[in-house]
Deep mutational scan, measured.
Amino acid sequence: CHSECLGNCSQPDDPTKCVACRNFYLDGRCVETCPPPYYHFQDWRCVNFSFCQDLHHKCKNSRRQGCHQYVIHNNKCIPECPSGYTMNSSNLLCTPCLGPCPKVCHLLEGEKTIDSVTSAQELRGCTVINGSLIINIRGGNNLAAELEANLGLIEEISGYLKIRRSYALVSLSFFRKLRLIRGETLEIGNYSFYALDNQNLRQLWDWSKHNLTITQGKLFFHYNPKLCLSEIHKMEEVSGTKGRQERNDIALKTNGDQASCENELLKFSYIRTSFDKILLRWEPYWPPDFRDLLGFMLFYKEAPYQNVTEFDGQDACGSNSWTVVDIDPPLRSNDPKSQNHPGWLMRGLKPWTQYAIFVKTLVTFSDERRTYGAKSDIIYVQTDATNPSVPLDPISVSNSSSQIILKWKPPSDPNGNITHYLVFWERQAEDSELFELDYCLKGLKLPSRTWSPPFESEDSQKHNQSEYEDSAGECCSCPKTDSQILKELEESSFRKTFEDYLHNVVFVPRKT
């Protein structure tokens, strides 16, 4: 048989008469490798580009789960590009990614509803959504962080984005990388972005840091009482949809009607710091009717980097990364020049730590249904340095008659930039024990000054392991946590139920 035959053949030295091919099969003959313009397919066939392209389009058009959109890589027609490569849609070739590779997620039936953290986790790592997304989240724990972890990498949506009755959302900033909504599939009414009845939605994105392009379709905003109209108009300008909307697409009466839409800028007039305090004062603000001013709200939190936005980490279910302080308005003076500047002394802060701070007014709604208010920009203030805590785990070892090696770990709280350490030492008198000992005694162990690591005695271990207080009263049991108490109650309830079950099964009433 021919060298490319495997198993047997019907005619000697003829690659077209093989029972099976050793390498690849091409047009009725066995070959060692697939010549151009053919590609290896499933490690035994040679196919042309049209064959591989037909497989790709067949799966793409069917949208069946589990099928493969075949691509070409290293002269092979394979189910998908290997790690580190992405497909070129024009020629199906796998090309190296520039940075992290995109991950295209194809949605069944063309859309997916995100109504819980669990459903959001199914899209973790996706960068391109081939379909439409509907966000409908009523509640949950730590929602802002969970949504950002699972949806934060999405850069492109081919269909539309719909935010509907998501009472738990305060902001859409968890879509931190969303840059493009194509609108290839539109919501009824030709809408590519749809926001309806979101009672706590206050911000779409921080438009000073976020760009969003909507290729096709219109915007729809109705019944978002805490979303200011200025935020919607800003989205029109940034996304390129200005002029597409009709009169009733953006409701003037049901958007922002319960919001404090600040239209003035508060400026800080005085800032002073110490290692654990920050004193702030800002310019006074009074609405047209000074009785509408209820006070100020001061927001602050630790910020290692200057990239904080107002609604980071917030949701309507209680999660809030900001510390909020309510401040009463100052006494009002008739003389504008003698107006008191409101302020606040922030206490209990960490030394040498940068804080993000902003302040906003708290006002009631005027009778004319106009909203007044003022808010400052987010500023960054760093507390002063102070003395560091003591170095940890000092170790001293003498390696000769004239040297001592000293080692330690950095302090747990540096409280500033540590530039150097101060080492103090003092000579001590020799131990009298060394002169009084009889060095001729056998088995004498000389006193040693070398360091030995501390260890816990058996008594201390027994005390720590004991669940009861000892007789001397030195140790006591740790208080039980809520989960331990709940577990004990469940076990007790189970024992009672099981005992009742045994009584009912074992003891049967005697027939009379």
Rank of each mutant, 00 (worst) to 15 (best):
M346C: 05
G183V: 01
L349F: 02
W207F: 13
R370S: 06
N141T: 10
R247H: 12
L294D: 05
R179N: 07
N136K: 03
G131S: 02
S321F: 12
S274Y: 08
L280F: 01
T215V: 07
S269H: 12
D326M: 04
E109G: 15
I395L: 12
M235I: 13
Y300D: 00
K162Y: 10
H222E: 11
C105G: 01
K267L: 08
S166H: 02
W205I: 01
E236V: 14
V104Y: 06
S158T: 08
E236W: 15
S274C: 05
N142M: 11
A149E: 08
L331M: 14
D257M: 15
K234Q: 12
K162V: 12
A168P: 15
F174E: 01
K407P: 00
N334Y: 07
R124Q: 03
S173H: 12
T215H: 09
S260H: 04
A303F: 15
L293S: 04
V325S: 13
L219F: 06
D289C: 14
C261P: 11
N387S: 05
L280V: 13
P284I: 09
D289K: 03
G131K: 01
K209E: 03
G131W: 00
P391M: 04
N136F: 10
Y160S: 13
A316P: 15
I134T: 15
F296V: 08
T215N: 14
K226F: 10
L266I: 04
L204K: 01
Y191H: 11
K112Y: 04
D393W: 15
L279M: 09
Q245E: 15
E264H: 03
N141Q: 09
H222P: 00
P287W: 02
R369Y: 13
I181L: 10
S260N: 02
K407F: 03
G152I: 01
L298P: 00
E146A: 13
S402R: 11
P287L: 10
E156R: 03
T353N: 02
K218A: 12
L153R: 06
Y194L: 05
E231F: 13
F175K: 00
E283K: 05
I357Q: 00
N190W: 01
S338Y: 04
D315S: 10
Y305C: 09
I135M: 06
D249P: 14
R138N: 15
Y305G: 11
L107R: 07
G189W: 08
D197N: 15
D384V: 13
S398Y: 08
G189Q: 02
G131P: 00
L107K: 03
P304N: 08
K375V: 08
E231C: 14
T213K: 04
V390P: 15
C228Y: 07
A251F: 07
N320L: 09
I129C: 07
Y300F: 04
R247I: 09
Y305V: 12
Y191E: 08
E109P: 13
K253M: 14
G131E: 01
N248I: 10
R291F: 05
W322R: 01
K234V: 12
A120Q: 03
M346G: 06
Y194N: 14
L266Q: 02
W207M: 05
L294C: 05
G183F: 05
N150C: 05
E122R: 07
Q199K: 15
L212R: 00
S166W: 01
S333P: 04
P410T: 10
L169T: 09
L252Q: 10
V397Y: 14
T241W: 12
E283Q: 00
F174A: 08
W286P: 03
L172P: 02
G189E: 15
S396L: 14
K242M: 12
N340S: 09
E187G: 13
A251M: 11
D276R: 01
G131R: 00
W282E: 00
V128W: 14
W282C: 01
Y355A: 00
L180P: 00
A144N: 02
S230H: 02
I379M: 14
Y167K: 14
S132R: 03
I327Y: 04
E148L: 07
F174R: 01
D312H: 09
I154K: 00
S173Q: 06
L107E: 05
A316Y: 05
N224L: 10
L107N: 12
D393Q: 12
S158P: 00
V238I: 13
L169R: 00
M297I: 11
S132H: 09
L180A: 12
Y300E: 01
N399M: 15
S192T: 01
K277P: 00
A303Y: 15
A145S: 09
F365L: 04
D367F: 04
K242V: 12
A303P: 03
K226S: 06
L133H: 00
G217D: 00
S192M: 03
P329H: 02
L147M: 10
G295I: 04
L265E: 06
W282H: 01
K209R: 12
A356Y: 00
L133F: 04
S119H: 10
L252D: 04
I135T: 04
D249K: 15
K350Y: 15
T127N: 05
L219V: 06
L186M: 11
F290A: 14
W282L: 04
G217Q: 01
V359K: 00
I157A: 01
L280S: 02
L349Q: 01
S269A: 09
A120M: 07
R164M: 14
R247W: 11
W352V: 12
T213N: 04
K360Y: 01
P287K: 05
G125S: 07
S333V: 06
D393A: 15
L345F: 09
T213A: 06
R244C: 06
P388V: 01
T353Y: 11
S274G: 03
E283H: 08
D289V: 05
K407R: 06
L108D: 00
G343Q: 01
N340K: 04
L180H: 10
Q403F: 05
E262T: 10
D312T: 10
L293R: 02
S321H: 11
C228R: 09
S171C: 04
I232G: 02
M297N: 15
N200G: 02
Q258T: 13
N198R: 00
S338A: 09
L178V: 03
N340A: 07
I154F: 01
D367L: 11
T254Y: 08
V104H: 12
D377K: 08
E310T: 03
D377H: 04
R369W: 13
D292C: 13
L201A: 03
Y160L: 04
Y285E: 01
F358Q: 07
L108Y: 05
L161N: 00
P225W: 05
K277R: 02
V238A: 07
A374D: 01
F221W: 03
N248H: 03
I154L: 09
G256E: 14
S389Y: 03
E368V: 15
L212S: 04
G256Y: 08
P330V: 07
T323L: 13
L227R: 00
T273P: 04
Q258D: 05
V104A: 07
S401L: 04
N255S: 08
S132L: 01
V397P: 13
P329R: 11
D115H: 11
R272K: 00
A303C: 02
F174V: 10
P342N: 11
A385L: 01
K226Y: 06
L153E: 13
K162T: 01
D335E: 15
R182S: 07
Q382K: 12
K277L: 07
R176L: 04
S260V: 09
E264A: 03
P287F: 04
L279K: 15
E156W: 07
